[in-house]
């Protein structure tokens, strides 16, 4: 338990007009002695020993090894190698095809679009050489990349009041063409199309 506090020795907590007690002068370092450690052989020897222990410990510990090799140096080397990458390219490095597809959806739909995505089980199917991750089944994850556009899934026909407002259909792994109001002859695995001719 901490030492009991003697009220008489404690300064008041809040006294607006009371002048502050003068700051206590800390024990200073005479200017002449300030740099003595730099040239002192003891200081250098201690730094070598301390530094050796310091880094020896760090290189033996699996957590710190990960920090240095992967988190710091690994990322630093990667960044230096790709320092001219654009923001789009950096997004692709981390998010892969998900980012490419959702950026395409954003660029090819108006801001007030309501975009229909296929049944959640189809969203992670492979289409040609490409495949989306399971993240695409999260409405808010997709919304992050397409905001202010709204996202609905085919599974939500009965539950989502915005289902009837769908203006565009996201074609994922070839699924979604059946939701268009018009036939499409040239089909690709991943694209976004207006739901009806009128939207076109």
């Amino acid at each position: 338990m901490a030492k009991p506090v003697n009220k008489k020795k404690c300064p008041q907590l809040s006294k607006g007009k009371r002048p502050l007690p003068p700051p206590q002068k800390e024990k200073g370092t005479p200017v002449g002695r300030w740099l003595e450690g730099v040239f002192g052989i003891k200081s250098i020897a201690l730094a070598v020993v301390g530094g050796g222990l310091f880094f020896g410990l760090i290189t033996k510990d699996p957590g710190y090894q990960w920090v240095w090799n992967s988190l710091l140096k690994g990322n630093w080397d990667f960044i230096q190698k790709h320092r001219n990458a654009t923001l789009d390219e950096r997004n692709q490095m981390k998010l892969g095809f998900d980012y490419v597809f959702l950026s395409y959806v954003k660029q090819n739909t108006p801001e007030d679009a309501v975009i229909l995505f296929p049944l959640k089980e189809y969203n992670t199917e492979k289409g040609g050489d490409y495949q989306l991750s399971g993240n695409v089944n999260s409405r808010f994850w997709v919304t992050h990349f397409v905001y202010p556009r709204r996202v609905v899934y085919k599974d939500e026909q009965e539950t989502n009041p915005r289902y009837k407002d769908v203006t565009h259909v996201a074609i994922v792994a070839g699924h979604g063409y059946e939701d268009l109001d018009y036939p499409v002859t040239e089909r690709s695995y991943f694209t976004v199309l207006p739901k009806s001719i009128a939207e076109k």
Binding site: K27, T29, R33, G37, V38, S43, L46, L72, I79
Partner: peptide
């Protein structure tokens, strides 16, 4: 008051600076 400079202190500050720069860059 300036702390008396010891190489161990400088080494720790340098290590902090290296970690800070690398992490902020990331």
């Amino acid at each position: 008051t300036y702390p008396k400079i010891s190489w161990l202190w400088l080494l720790a500050l340098l290590a902090i600076a290296v970690v800070a720069v690398m992490n902020v860059t990331k």
